[in-house]
């Protein structure tokens, strides 16, 4: 009798545990489907809304006044210029700082502090960077400018490059450094000629990720490079950029502007996805070799 009851008790307990496991498994599956579904939903909406507007005119014509046809040439060129400027400013600083952390000061207190601060900068709100550049560049200069926009983006580039450079240089085997030193190569040459070469794929990945990160950034550009309706490649004046144009056009009441905003959004997303997939592929081949 007692044995039977115990048996029953164990049985029901076992079934309850099984049920709970099934429930959790189902929920996990549902959560994953939700996450993937969302990616599909967003990409689908982008393709649906943006693809119809995609034409040659988008890449050859200027942004139109409301109610007429046009393209996105000036914001595309502006975005490319701002991105290039940010990479040119941010990459050397990032690589040098990462080099110090991985090579000279791997066990320094300074490195620990810089790593901590860098990781915080990595996720710091980008709109605050915009305010910062406004304070130190736009306000003293008295006008909005492409330079300010580029520097604001560079501030976002630096932490990404620092992080990947340090990680990748740390992975370079010490035997390489020892070999370089044993033939009498000075430390600086050992780093630039040997370690950089060994870590090249990873470091390029860092730069690609940085480009991906900044190419959709809007918040730091709103009050640094502002916007420009007209063709301008003057970095000392307000300059148009894709994200800011998308922001302005999407929130406007005009249908053509909204359509152009969708097309711009599609272009940016495709560029960013292509960059991040390339970066991943680079890391994968780097790991194999």
């Amino acid at each position: 009798m007692a044995g039977q009851m115990a048996e029953q008790f164990l049985q029901s307990r076992y079934r309850r545990r099984q049920r709970r496991n099934t429930l959790a498994t189902t929920l996990a599956l549902a959560a994953t489907a939700l996450g993937l579904g969302w990616l599909v939903l967003i990409l689908g909406a982008l393709l649906w809304q943006g693809f119809s507007g995609l034409s040659l005119a988008v890449f050859t014509e200027m942004t139109p006044p409301p109610g007429s046809a046009g393209g996105l040439l000036n914001p595309i060129v502006g975005s490319l210029m701002l991105t290039a400027l940010a990479i040119v400013i941010g990459t050397p600083i990032g690589i040098l700082a990462g080099t110090y952390m991985a090579e000279y000061g791997r066990y320094d207190v300074l490195t620990t502090v810089v790593r901590f601060i860098n990781d915080i900068l990595l996720s710091a709100p980008s709109i605050v960077v915009g305010l910062f550049i406004y304070e130190i560049m736009v306000a003293p200069m008295g006008h909005f400018s492409g330079f300010a926009g580029g520097v604001a983006l560079a501030v976002l580039v630096i932490p990404v490059v620092v992080r990947t450079t340090e990680d990748m240089l740390t992975l370079v085997p010490n035997a390489l450094r020892e070999a370089a030193t044993s033939i009498g190569l000075p430390r600086s040459l050992a780093i630039t000629r040997i370690c950089y070469r060994a870590a090249r794929a990873g470091m390029v990945t860092g730069v690609l990720l940085a480009v991906a990160r900044i190419s959709g950034e809007t918040a730091p550009l709103l009050f640094t490079s502002l916007n420009n309706q007209f063709w301008s490649t003057n970095l000392n004046a307000p300059i148009s950029s894709l994200p800011v144009v998308i922001f302005q056009f999407a929130l406007s009441p005009y249908k053509d502007w909204q359509a152009l905003a969708w097309t711009g959004a599609l272009i940016i997303t495709m560029a960013v996805l292509a960059l991040s997939i390339t970066a991943r592929a680079l890391v994968a081949t780097g790991k194999q070799s």
């Binding site: 967003i42 959709g216 918040a219 994200p243 922001f247 959004a265 940016i268 996805l273």
Partner: peptide
């Protein structure tokens, strides 16, 4: 990849 999509895309 969801993390890579720029925030303005989520906005629009």
């Amino acid at each position: 990849l969801l993390a890579g999509i720029p925030s303005i895309i989520y906005g629009i």
